[in-house]
Amino acid sequence: MGRFRQTWIGLVSEVSWRLPGWPVKLLTAFGQAERGSFYDMLAAAEATDRPDLRRKYFEHALDESQHAIYFRDRVMALGGIDRARAAMEEAGALTSRGIVGGESLYERLGEIDFLAFVHVAEAEAIEQFSVYCDRELPDPETIAMLQKIMPDEKFHTAYPLHELEQRRKQGKGKQVDTALRRVKWNRLKEGWLRFSRDVGHVMSSVWLFLLYAILIPPFSLLGKVERGGWQAPRRDRRPLAVAARSQG
């Protein structure tokens, strides 16, 4: 791990684990990520045509499912029942895990890039978890939990690396390097995009609020909440062929 990177993770973690309410937030987010990768790995196990890799993806998926439960249990123990349920039940929150164009991560990336992705992402998770444990940031039980899952995470980062090394031996070193670079670059890019999307979101919310405060009041006198009871259905005067094509 690079020195700069380690310091950076350390600094961010020192702050985030100490903010009130944040440990629960962080654990929830990890739980969601674990659950998301359960689905990603299961989809990979389904799609790959390599029997040996199918088995590894499948076992990996089962690990992540178990980890998600460990994280949920910690969230519940820390009194964050609400969030744990949201994480486990409202899997709608997982839509952000990256379904683009209706393809699984595996289908989107292809085998080599997927392996590179898994290796890089899991290595980053180990990095983070180690910093948390070394600096004793979470509560002791959470540290024990993180230490318990560490061997799994090491397996998750090791087998894709081994697989990539095999490809290197087959003379596909260049492809492997490109995949690793691409995956690292994409993770940075996605992080940045997420950040700018969040900022954009806040900005537009502010603008929309101003719009609301300035433009809506004059109309609000005219607006009325619908009354209850039966009302005649709205009649559409347009010919059916026209109305049926219209979004409004």
């Binding site: 502010v206 609020f209 609301y212 409004g248």
Partner: peptide, 25 residues
């Protein structure tokens, strides 16, 4: 019909001003 749904949401925000300030943005 998405546009009709949007109209309803807009009209309802107007009608419930200012209580709709959180929902509107």
């Amino acid at each position: 019909k998405p546009l009709r749904k949007f109209e309803r949401i807009l009209a309802n925000s107007v009608a419930t001003f200012p209580r709709s300030w959180r929902a509107f943005p």
